[in-house]
Structures are given as C-alpha cells and as structure tokens.
Design a protein around this nucleic acid. Structure first.
Lengths: 101, 101
DNA sequence: AGAATAATTAGGGTGAAGACTAATTATTAT
DNA sequence: ATAATAATTAGTCTTCACCCTAATTATTCT
C-alpha cells in the first residue's frame, strides 16, 4: 500500500517542542513560570527544582531552544519568561489530529 | 525561597502522554490514524513508517500505554484506533500553562 | 497437516539524554 | 583589589530509549 502523504513540516517542525515538553523537570519549570505569572531569575527557578543548578541550566537551555521560554540578561542574572504563544503550535497540532472529522 | 506548590498530578500524570508524543515516529502514527480517520491494522501502520515492524510494535505499545490509541484483536490482526479524547488532557495542560492571567 | 501471514518477544548493540561535581566566567559589592 | 554571587561550561558516568535481526506465537488458508 502506498504511503499516506504526511508533510515534512508535520513530521519535523514539532520535534524540538515536543521533546522539550517530554521531561518532568522542564514541565515543572513551565508550571512555575505560569503560576508566578511573570519573570523569574535562573536561580529562583533552580531553587524550585529537585536537581542541581547546572542541570537546571541545561533544562532551561532546552526550553529556550524550543522557543518555549525567552531569556534576557540583566547584569549577572538571567531573566526567564514564558513564551506563551509558542504553545499554540502544539495546541494546533493536537487539535488537528484529535479533531473529529 | 519557599517552593511553589505544584500538584503531584501536574508533575506525574502527564508523564506517559508527553513522553509518547516526544518521538517523531509515534507522532507519525498518530497523523496516519488521524488522516485515515478510521481503524488501521498493525501491518498497515508498519508499512507507513521507516522502521522495522518490531520497532513499530514498540511504538504502538508506547502509544497504547499512554492511552493515545486503542487496540482490539481480530483473529491474527491488531486493529488500532486513535483515542481522540485522550488528547484533551494535553490540550488542557497547555491551555492552563499558556493562558494569559 | 503444512505453509503462509500477522504480529510479538528475545537478545543485543549504540548513542543520546540526564545527572552530578568541580572549575570557570562575569558581574556586583566591600 | 578581593570577596561574594549568579550562572555556565567542562568532564565524566550511567541509564535508558531506540533500533535491528532472528526466533517464536497465533491464526488462517490449502
């Protein structure tokens, strides 16, 4: 049987975002940022997690690469914010596959 | 600083679903089932993917454990269907974290 | 019964992801 | 200038997820 046409975009574009969401600590970061509902410093976030600060740094970088958070530097501090729009991509994907036709 | 209260549910319940969605082949399966908009046999799905049948079996089992697809057996064939409702859990999570407050 | 088909289990290899501690950079405070 | 703070990078280790082929199970067909 012939392969069903599935766009490259459908298969590739979501990779980073879904991978980023796949780890509990990273979801935890997202939930923290959401509940705080405003910017948080890196150390403030690291305090919330159950892993070391360097590990947290790694997770934050993953989230940033996926576009789920934004960072700006202020002095020696890093200020993180949730990139709320970015979540729409995932939401749309979910809607597209789960929608009753 | 005190830890932000984050429910166990928030941290644990989504684990399987998000992990299941994190792999391109598994998302591919979901897209196939969605586009076909009806039941598919295991072999029919395996045909669509670029990996071996045993590997596909593994992915299908992961999706089933996550509750994203359902299976029933008919003779020697396995009939898979998308569990569209299950996607709402993820959708709700996304809405809850991404919602402007 | 014997062959063919659908699918899973078994076994094993490889690479990447996640974790830690220690060391380093950059900025601010004394 | 020195010390302290915020955060990252470096280096290493371990575990697990994914992939494959070969073997096995279960069902159907001749």
């Amino acid at each position: 049987m012939k392969k069903i046409a599935v766009s490259k975009k459908e298969l590739g574009e979501y990779e980073e975002v879904f991978r980023a969401l796949a780890h509990a600590s990273r979801r935890h970061i997202i939930v923290c940022l959401s509940q705080k509902d405003g910017p948080m410093l890196g150390g403030e976030i690291a305090e919330q997690l159950d892993c070391s600060w360097p590990t947290t740094t790694g997770h934050l970088q993953t989230l940033e690469r996926a576009g789920l958070v934004t960072v700006r530097k202020q002095g020696r501090e890093q200020i993180y914010e949730l990139a709320r729009n970015r979540f729409n991509i995932v939401k749309k994907w979910l809607e597209s596959v789960a929608a009753q036709k």
